[in-house]
Structures are given as structure tokens and as C-alpha cells.
Amino acid sequence: MSNSIDYVAILIQFSVAVGFVGVTLLTIRFAGPRRLTSDKLQSWESGIESVGNARFPFSIKYFLTAILFVMFDVEVIFMYPWAVNFKSLGMIGFVEMFLFIGTLLLGFGYIIKKGGLTWD
């Protein structure tokens, strides 16, 4: 059996990952030369001239795709404890999961029929 203290390794790894990014950003800030001309401050220095700014409302179509992703994401999480106990739950567990997935497939059919994932 694992104990909470075993997760200290994960914590250390996490802090190393965050620390690496932080230290790199700080090093760049202090070690590199900084000449802040208007050309250098552009988002894409050698690319296309940017128009407007990033703070404008965008289409709800992206949001619909994201929220449908969240639905199926959460659904898959329910499958995880089922898959671990697949053998001990047996046929009953299979039927239970079938009902669950069937209801969600109904919703998926509705989405496809309404064209929720088409990009018009």
C-alpha cells in the first residue's frame, strides 16, 4: 500500500519542472541584452504585421467543441475504475457500463444529427 509520503517524489518533480521554467525565464530576463525597440516588441518580429489586439470575443463554436470535449473527458474517467475492476464485476458491471455508455451514445447521436461538430 502506498502512503501519502510517497508522493513527495511527484512533488519534487513538479517543483523541478516549475522551477526550471521560472529560472530560465529569469535568466533570460537578466542575462540577455535588452534593446526595446518597437520592432523588437512585436509579437512576431519577422512575421506578418499584427492587426488589432488579442482581446476580442471569438466565436461560440470553439466553446461548443470544448464543452463537448469536457463531457466525454469526464465520461472516460468513469470508465477507469470500471476497467480496473472489470473481471471482478463481471457481466453485471458490463451491463451497467453499457447503460451508461448507451445514454451517452444517445447524446452523441443527437450532437451528430444536429451538426454540433460540423464547422459551418
Binding site: L68, V74, T103
Partner: peptide, 16 residues
């Protein structure tokens, strides 16, 4: 699962 179903239908109805 019914909750998921209603959320899906609601999202599609509102956004589409």
C-alpha cells in the same frame, strides 16, 4: 449519465 445527456443537449441547443 442522464446529467451528461442533458448537458450535451443543452450545449448544442444553446450554441448551435
Amino acid at each position: 449519465s442522464i446529467l451528461f445527456l442533458s448537458a450535451m443537449i443543452g450545449a448544442v441547443l444553446l450554441a448551435k
